[in-house]
Simulated scan of single mutants.
Amino acid sequence: MLRKVLECRRCGYRTVCGRDDLVARLRIVGQLRRDKDPDESIVEALLAEYTPLMTCPGCKEVGLKANDADDEWDDDGDWQAAVLCEICRQPIDPERLEFLPETKRCTECQHKSETGTLPDEDPEFCSRCGALVELRVSRGSGITRYKRFCTGGCRGV
């Protein structure tokens, strides 16, 4: 089972992350966009390279350090990994998880989703280069039309 301790050198922030949380943090820095279920070896290799690009949630300093989780974390019976919201990446309240153990969203994001105020949840990526794809108004007269454009500049979609 893959578990790492992420630490901030500046403020002393420290958290233990499981495989799913590590994958989510790698996606935030632009990795594993297309791979839904990456191997642990790939996650570890990317983690070694991209933790210096991760932002500390405590002090907002860029540059975390990843270490193997010590056995002391395994012996602690009260240890429980925080489940992060899939939208805002903030911890979901333990009371909500106790009532809805399979939930993936915090109360606020779930409310925004139900009321329709949540922005588009699933970004689209270019099949050629992997950059974000955005919708733009096409130029021309008549009916307004939209086209998909790659933000990476490869002209593929």
Rank of each mutant, 00 (worst) to 15 (best):
V16I: 06
R19A: 11
R19P: 02
D20S: 14
D21I: 07
D21G: 04
L22H: 05
V23N: 08
A24D: 09
R25M: 13
R25S: 10
R27P: 03
I28F: 13
I28G: 14
V29R: 06
V29F: 04
L32E: 11
R34L: 15
D35W: 04
K36N: 10
K36H: 13
D37N: 15
P38Y: 08
P38A: 11
P38E: 12
D39A: 15
D39F: 11
E40R: 13
S41P: 03
S41I: 11
S41G: 10
V43I: 15
E44Q: 11
L47V: 08
L47E: 06
E49D: 14
Y50C: 09
P52V: 05
L53I: 00
T55M: 10
T55W: 02
C56R: 07
E61A: 09
K65S: 02
A66H: 03
A66K: 06
A66W: 07
D68Q: 03
D68S: 06
A69T: 05
A69Q: 04
D70T: 12
E72Y: 03
E72K: 05
E72H: 05
D75A: 00
D75C: 00
D76T: 01
D76K: 01
D78L: 09
W79A: 05
Q80G: 10
A81W: 02
A82Q: 11
A82T: 02
V83L: 07
V83A: 02
L84D: 00
C85W: 02
C85S: 01
E86N: 03
E86I: 04
I87D: 12
I87P: 00
R89E: 13
Q90P: 00
I92G: 06
D93V: 02
P94M: 07
E98G: 14
E98F: 08
F99N: 14
P101V: 10
P101R: 11
P101E: 12
K104S: 13
R105I: 13
C106L: 12
C106H: 09
T107I: 14
E108A: 15
E108H: 12
Q110H: 10
Q110D: 14
K112T: 08
K112P: 01
K112A: 14
S113H: 09
E114R: 13
E114S: 11
T115P: 00
T115V: 15
T117A: 02
L118F: 04
L118G: 08
L118M: 10
L118P: 04
P119S: 09
D122N: 10
P123G: 02
P123K: 03
P123T: 05
E124P: 00
F125G: 01
F125W: 04
C126R: 01
C126I: 04
